[in-house]
Amino acid sequence: MRLDHLAELNAARRSRKAVILITDPASGETEVLVEGQPVPAQLAEAAEKVFRSGKSGLIDIDGRPLFFNVHLPPPRIVAIGAVHITQGLARLAPVVGYDLTIIDPRTAFATPERFEGVDLVADWPEDVLKERLLDPYTAVAAVTHDPKIDDFALAEALRCGCFYVGALGSRKTHGRRVERLLESGVTQAQIDKIHAPIGLDIGASSPEEIALAILAQIVAAFRRRSLSGGAT
């Protein structure tokens, strides 16, 4: 592999662009395809398929087996609520390779002291998510318990096809949430995609354990997501 091709590949990955490195095992020659940039005609069909599936493998091109190694942007988490649980999430998420953004308009909670080194935005989700768009590679976990803060983010996450949408709260709390979302025009089918109560059932008790349960549920949702898009 050429070092300049490796550098181009790593640069694309750093900027959250999908990228394929093609290697011809017979000659050792490599080629880099960045999503959105022109692709040689004979590679176009295979490249599109690999970008969509996210699966690397050997593909026959004009009788030659070429290895398509695809790198999709790493999934990231947007957490609504600068609370004790998200302090735990801020420590756990980097270990499994997830970027994390925390949004909370309550400046008493969203302080740099409580979230050192974390991408923390002390503003309303309505305002933040206009600038920082959600996408299918993003998981949204709403954990403030406050409908004024959580509801918009949940509806927006469902609208944008986030691969995971989770909301903290008891079944009773979630029942009232469902009523509010229905009133605001979100469909029942969409609402059914919300993970609530949030987190895998591991009997989590402490905030850190709940953070682990949420993260594990996010990993499961990403690894088992359907390619047609949207939360599972």
Binding site: R13, P94, D99
Partner: peptide, 9 residues
């Protein structure tokens, strides 16, 4: 930023 080890980097 993630702290996951990345062989290509």
């Amino acid at each position: 930023m993630t702290i996951m080890l990345d062989p290509l980097v």
